[in-house]
Write a protein that binds this DNA or RNA. Structure first.
Lengths: 214, 214
DNA sequence: CGCATGCACTTTGTATGCGATAGCTCGCGT
DNA sequence: ACGCGAGCTATCGCATACAAAGTGCATGCG
C-alpha cells in the first residue's frame, strides 16, 4: 500500500492544480517572479511540468487573492508601489494594534518562548539570513493575529501582511535590529497581559516601518 | 448573429469567463445560490450556457475572493455563520470608524446629497423594497470607504461588507428605519467635516447592527 | 434476512486542440 | 526618415474529450 512519502503531506495528495497554486505563490513571494512580470502560461506551465489548465486555474485563484492581476488578456504579477505599501501599513497599524490588545495574556506561554528564542538566535547569528528574518517576522505577527480571538481580524491582518511583503524595494537587512527590538517589546507586552501596552507597542512597530520607508 | 443589447457595456465585450464570474457573484449575493449549496459544475455551466472551463475558472477566482470554498473536491457556496458575522462587524466597527473619520469633509457634496435623497425616498416608499435598501446601504458605506483617501482601507471595508452580506439570517426589513436613521447621522457628520463625530456615528451604526443580531 | 461485493453512473481533474486576437515586424508610401 | 498598414506569429480563451475517483444501487452469497 505504501503511499511513498507521506511526509510532505500533500505533495501528491490530490490536486495538481493546488500544488501549482502553492508553487506559484512561493515563486511570487520569493520574488523569483517579481512585480510587473507578465506571465506566459505555456512557459510557466512547462516550467512546472503541468499543462496550461491547472496553471490557469491556479492563476485565477491567485487573481482572486490579489497576487496577480489581469492586464489586458495576460496575467501579470501584482506590483505593490510605495503608496500602497504605506497605506497597508497604516491599516495594519490600526488592525494589529487592536489584535495585539486582544491577544495580550491569551497567547500561550510556550509559543511566546519559542518566538523569543528565535529572535535571540537571529540577533546572534554570525551572518544575516533573510529567510530567518522573514520567518521570525511571521512568527511574531502570527502571535498577534492568531490569538486575538477574532479569526476574521486575523485573516485581514494576514492578507495585509501579504501585500506589504510584495513591496520589493524594502531593504530588509537594515531592519534586522529595529525589527528584533520592537518585536521583543511586543511579545513582552503580550506576555505581561497588558492590552493597552501591547496595542501601543504594535502600533509603534508599524510606525517605525512607515518612517523607515518614507 | 444579433449580439442583442450592447447597452450594459461589457455584456459580450470579451471574456466569457469574466461574465460567468459576475453572473455567479450575483447568484450568490442574491442568494439564488445560498450558503452551503454544493455546486455541480456541469449543471451550473449548462444553466449559464457555457462549458465547464470558464465556469471553473470563475469558481477558482471566487474561491480566491472567498465567495466559495472547496469542500473535498467540489465547490460549495461559502456559508457565513453568526460567529463570523459578528466578528466581521467588530472589524468593520474599527475600520469604518477610521474611514469615516478620514472621509469627513472630503466626500463631495453632490454625492452626499444624492445619497440623502435616496434614503428619504426609501423611507417614504409605500412598500418595502429590499433591493433599494441594499443599494442605499451600498451608497452610504461607499461614501465612507471611497473617499477616505486610503484605497487599501476602502478595499478591506468592501471585502468585509461582502462577508456580512453573505450572512443570510439577517432580517433586513426590520432594519429599514434604524439603518436609515443611522445612515443619515453618518452622512450628516461627514458633511459637517467633524471627523471625530463621523467616527462615532459609524461605530454606533456597527454596534447597532451587532446588537440587532445577538 | 443481512451484509459484502461489484458494477454502473455521476462528477471532478487534466490534457489537448482549435479558433481568435493582440502585438510585432517589416515593408510601403509619403 | 517617419508613420502607417498588412501579414505573421505567439499567446490566449474556450470547448471537448478522456481518465480517475467517489457513490449508490443491485445482486448474490452466507
Amino acid at each position: 500500500m505504501q503511499e511513498s512519502q507521506m511526509a510532505p503531506a500533500k505533495l501528491n495528495d490530490d490536486a495538481l492544480s493546488d500544488r501549482v497554486h502553492v508553487a506559484v505563490t512561493k515563486l511570487i513571494k520569493s520574488q523569483k517572479l517579481h512585480g510587473g512580470d507578465i506571465i506566459v502560461e505555456s512557459r510557466l506551465a512547462e516550467m512546472l511540468g503541468v499543462s496550461r489548465t491547472p496553471l490557469r486555474e491556479a492563476l485565477q485563484k491567485l487573481e482572486g487573492e490579489g497576487l496577480v492581476v489581469k492586464n489586458g488578456r495576460s496575467f501579470v504579477v501584482r506590483a505593490v508601489g510605495l503608496a500602497e505599501y504605506l497605506q497597508s501599513l497604516k491599516v495594519r497599524e490600526i488592525l494589529e494594534g487592536e489584535a495585539a490588545a486582544l491577544s495580550a495574556g491569551r497567547a500561550p506561554a510556550g509559543a511566546i518562548r519559542t518566538v523569543r528564542k528565535n529572535i535571540d538566535e537571529l540577533l546572534s547569528a554570525p551572518v544575516y539570513l533573510p529567510e530567518a528574518h522573514w520567518q521570525s517576522d511571521d512568527e511574531v505577527h502570527a502571535l498577534v493575529s492568531d490569538f486575538c480571538g477574532n479569526p476574521v481580524l486575523g485573516q485581514m491582518i494576514r492578507h495585509l501582511r501579504m501585500v506589504t511583503r510584495l513591496y520589493e524595494k524594502l531593504n530588509l537587512a537594515d531592519r534586522l535590529v529595529p525589527d528584533a527590538t520592537e518585536h521583543l517589546e511586543i511579545i513582552d507586552a503580550l506576555e505581561s497581559g497588558d492590552g493597552r501596552l501591547a496595542r501601543q507597542k504594535a502600533q509603534m512597530h508599524m510606525r517605525s516601518l512607515y518612517k523607515a520607508s518614507i
